[in-house]
Amino acid sequence: MNETIFQKRIDAEKKIEPKDWMPDGYRKHLIRQISQHAHSEVIGMQPEGNWISRAPTLRAKMILLAKVQDEAGHGLYLYSACETLGISREELIQQLHDEKAKYSSIFNYPTLSWADMGAIGWLVDGAAIVNQVSLQRTSYGPYSRGMIKICKEESFHQRQGYEIMAQMASGTAKQKEMAQDALNRFWWPSIMMFGPHDADSPRTGNAIKWKIKRQTNDELRQSFIDKTVEQAEVIGLEIPDPDLKWNEERGHYDFGEMDWEEFWNVVNGNGPCNKQRLAHHKKAHDDGAWVRDAAKAHAKKPKIAATN
């Protein structure tokens, strides 16, 4: 009965709010998806954070720091949306540390040159934005509101990345080489960010029925590729896919097959930086324990000495 009313509301494009009845599967799917999204924002701070101290100009330094800071903010918006489903942030972090929750595999690749800041902004944020724009219409109210806020703030992220790529592609020979190398390394992992093919993605069915996801992995991936090809041409860089070509009939670009063995390897913990990323997060969390304890103890003392 409940389930029928619930599905009717979904079908009528009405949002589900935290206090509404929802099927267990819906709640579980949301917790998994939103927390994975939140963890991705937070773990995603590391590969770019890696270059803040080495950014080449004052302007570049401020932009990159502001961008990585936004990611922390977006992590918080998402943790906060996830908490409305009845799970605490501490539990979510614990799941991350216990490797029960995942984050986007893209962040398990190392950032080896300054051009990687360009490639990440342009491709990784670009792919994320395609996904997030679609998720603004997700059926769960708090998630949808979080996505709307995130999309509004992220519009500068992709542009800053593309600006770096454009600048380096038209710079010295060494800079152009770095830019092409970054594109070569980040292209395939970026298009794999959308996840397995629809046929191999067992949970897509429910997620679409419940309107948690509004478009499938393959639809989103195609839309990202169609947008990106021309952008690469404009700055004179070459996408490392010999099978990439315009298909007049489909009205889309055809592209080569992705290396799913590598994808699953990285998802399952065997990427170049999986252990490093998690260890970094755990260390920061553990190092901060005495600080959080002190703040908590101080708050309990009868007289709050801090000035408001």
């Binding site: 101290s53 720091l65 800071q69 922390a72 903010g73 992590g75 918080l76 943790y79 920061a284 600080v291």
Partner: peptide, 22 residues
């Protein structure tokens, strides 16, 4: 201060430290 990025004792404080750096 920017070296604190992604190392703060809480995510909220991480943002605060970045704001100071900026």
């Amino acid at each position: 201060m920017s070296e604190w990025c992604a190392k703060g004792p809480t995510l909220e404080e991480d943002i605060a430290l970045s704001n100071i750096a900026l």
